[in-house]
Amino acid sequence: MTVNQFVRIIAGFFIMASLALAHFNGQVDMSKLSWLWFTAFVGANLFQSGFTKFCPLDTILKKLGVKESTGNSCA
């Protein structure tokens, strides 16, 4: 695994963990439809893309002509 993959996995995990902790602590009600589900989707997508190397935004940006980074960067 690469550093980029680990960054995606860890970032996605922390996003989902923070939502879960807030929900189970009673600060957030994830049983209702809210914008927090968008945050959950982003976290889950980050997490899975670390394992599968598939990221929809990556694909979209490449089709739009955005160049890939060749240097060291975070995610």
Rank of each mutant, 00 (worst) to 15 (best):
K62C: 05
T52F: 11
L19V: 00
E68T: 06
F38Y: 03
G71L: 06
N25P: 00
K32V: 08
F14Q: 07
C74F: 14
G43N: 12
K62L: 08
Q27D: 10
L61P: 01
I10S: 15
I9P: 02
C55S: 13
V3C: 05
I10M: 12
M30C: 04
H23G: 02
A17S: 05
R8P: 02
L33G: 02
K53Q: 14
V3L: 15
K62H: 09
G43A: 12
A22F: 03
C74I: 12
H23L: 02
Q5E: 11
F24E: 00
T59P: 01
T59K: 15
D29C: 01
V66I: 06
R8T: 01
S34D: 10
W35Y: 08
D29K: 04
G26I: 02
A11N: 10
A75M: 15
L57D: 03
S18L: 02
T2V: 06
A11C: 10
I9Y: 04
S73E: 13
G26W: 02
K63D: 15
F13D: 06
K63C: 09
A44I: 02
N45H: 05
V3W: 12
E68G: 06
L33F: 05
S34E: 09
F38H: 04
T70W: 01
K53L: 11
V28I: 11
A17Q: 06
L57Q: 01
I15W: 04
G12T: 08
T70S: 11
V66P: 07
G65P: 08
Q5N: 14
F13C: 09
L21N: 14
G26Q: 07
V7A: 12
V28M: 07
H23C: 02
N72E: 15
Q48T: 15
D58G: 14
K32W: 01
Q48W: 13
